[in-house]
Amino acid sequence: MDELKIEIKNLTKSFMGGEGEVKAIENLNLSIKENEFTVLVGPSGCGKSTLLYMLAGFEKPTSGSILLDNQIIKGPGPDRGFVFQDFVLYPWKTVVRNISFGLEIQGFSQKEAIEKAKQKINLLGLQGFENAYPHTLSGGMKQRVGIARALAYNPKVLLMDEPFGSLDAQTRKLMQEELLRIWNKEKKTVVFVTHSVIEAVFLADRVVVLTDRPSRVKGIIDIHLDRPRDYEHTYTDERYIELREKVLNILKDEVIHHKQHYESV
């Protein structure tokens, strides 16, 4: 459990914007342990998604480095799984084929891949929807497929970019509990991005608060709450409420700073 999984060193990322260079991330340092559930929070528009994209290998750092198992991340690869906010499923593939596709890429025959995908169908509670096309599913069900797809080929790291951000409040709560149940079974290193403090504290082992652009680590809060967690018990837990206030207080300065910054522009 205590083995170092991801190490981010002096990471800087800048983009060419309409008005010259924009720094999204500057000199960010962070270490993530194996099988740890890390949640990144920060004001909207800070570099948290960009950071996740770099962990996935979708984008390259301007300077600094990210190590995964002591290897520099050079590009996307199947040791990681990614869950998008807008699901990003393949509309032309059925649920089961969406999930088995990653296994097919790994070299499994179609039959084997579908067989293996069935396990994830059961894990995510998608039985009965195997042959449905994504557009016929509700948002919550779509994201279950998204998670199953990311887990199917058994990556060690699961990267989640506001995965419940486009779901309604009820479904969102349900999916959070589901995610914890799955994480408990599958044991992955999870890096989860959200702007909801409630969600962050509920899910995380550690909450990492990022500053407004350019992003740096502003504070790290360990969440020593009992697991398994569920809404009924965790929400009423005084320690939970305390931790939530703590994260909110750290974040508040940043949000105000963010607002002033944008109002002055």
């Binding site: 996935a56 290998g57 979708f58 590009g75 996307p76 690869g77 199947p78 990681r80 799984g81 990614f82 998008f84 807008d86 990003v88 393949y90 596709f101 990653g102 890429i105 790994q106 797809r149 080929y153």
Partner: peptide
């Protein structure tokens, strides 16, 4: 084509 759908495939090693 949505950039993310290409990403979602490349991360699986395609």
């Amino acid at each position: 084509i949505n950039k993310q759908i290409i990403w979602s495939t490349s991360i699986m090693g395609a």
